[in-house]
Amino acid sequence: MNRAQYGAITEGAEREIGFYLSDNFSMLPFISAVEPLRIANRMSRKPLYQWSIVTENGDSVFATNGMELAAKYAVKNAPDFSMIFVNGPHEPKNFNHRPTLNWLAGQSKRGIVIGGIETGCHILAESGLLDGIQCTTHWENQVEFVEAFPKHKVSSDVYEIDGNRVTCSGGAVSMDMMLYIIEQHHGHELAASVADVMIHPNICHPGEPQRMNVQARTGVSHPALLECIELMEANIEQPLSPNELARLVEISKRQLERLFRRYLNTTPARYYLNMRLDAARKMLETSAMKIIDVTVACGFKSAGHFSSRSYSSYGVTPRDSRKI
């Protein structure tokens, strides 16, 4: 079947983009990056982009949702692409394929755009391609990234473009990143048309934060309560006391407790504890940090204290949580 009528170009395009996929990659950011290219071809009625999947050995790879994708190339026989985007594995700490790292380092010498999507940013950093570069990665993976690459300049923005390096936090934001690239190549009108077809009226731009603001995430509108939650999120490692929180938002401790009961049906202490436990669980699931380091990073007095709190809330200890 000829799929060129839908924009799926297989040869003769102006640019061929290589997507390197690791086993256990995330499907959403990959699809979100590919579809704008296909639609750009269809809307322009020109073969602007074609894309190929590259894997370690040319074998198929599985996404975290269980779907399997076939590769066109192995690293050792991949052609010279116009651009390369790397989608890393769910647990980037396990990635150690030296031929891939060498391939990326070699391709960078050609001066082409090389991008990291979600944990693909870890692979780019491991290849030495983010030295001195302003970059980003998914907020769930930032702690592990900073631990592994403490000298790198990491933001919490949706995506970063620094010279010929592109790093994207992942998820659906890959769509916004690719729309930006299409605009740079072929103008605003085409990029806007592609966004319109995808029913994507609110395009994210570089510099925008990854996460929704506190009001959108919690449904809370009271300004003092919002400010208090923001303070909690900014002080996970060294938690503030209820008295300190009340003083900083300029209300009494009693008023603060009433606000939490009224809007969130909990106490400030319980809300703060759950926030820290949730942050710790994400660190355990997405990083290789030692449990004692997670304990300190999330403001618990001791590993025993952390373990007992975790068990009370989730029914598992931190050590058991890492095995799940």
Rank of each mutant, 00 (worst) to 15 (best):
G7D: 04
A8N: 13
E11A: 15
G12S: 07
E16W: 06
F19L: 10
S22R: 03
F25T: 02
S26E: 15
M27A: 15
F30H: 05
A33P: 01
E35F: 08
S44E: 09
Q50N: 11
V54S: 00
T55A: 03
G58N: 00
N65G: 04
E68N: 14
E68M: 14
L69T: 10
A70Q: 13
A70C: 12
A71N: 01
Y73L: 05
A78H: 01
A78C: 02
P79W: 08
E91A: 15
L101M: 06
L104Y: 02
S108Q: 15
G111I: 04
T119L: 07
S127C: 07
Q134E: 12
Q142Y: 09
E144D: 15
E144K: 08
F145P: 00
K153A: 10
V154C: 02
E160W: 06
N164Y: 12
G170D: 00
G171H: 01
Q184F: 09
Q184E: 14
H186C: 14
S193H: 10
H200Y: 11
M212Y: 15
Q215T: 13
P223S: 08
L231T: 05
P239H: 07
L248M: 15
L248V: 07
R254F: 14
R254V: 13
Q255A: 15
Q255G: 13
L259V: 07
F260K: 02
L264E: 03
A269H: 11
L273P: 01
R276N: 06
R281N: 11
A288R: 09
D293C: 07
T295C: 15
S302F: 01
T317G: 06
R322C: 08
R322E: 13
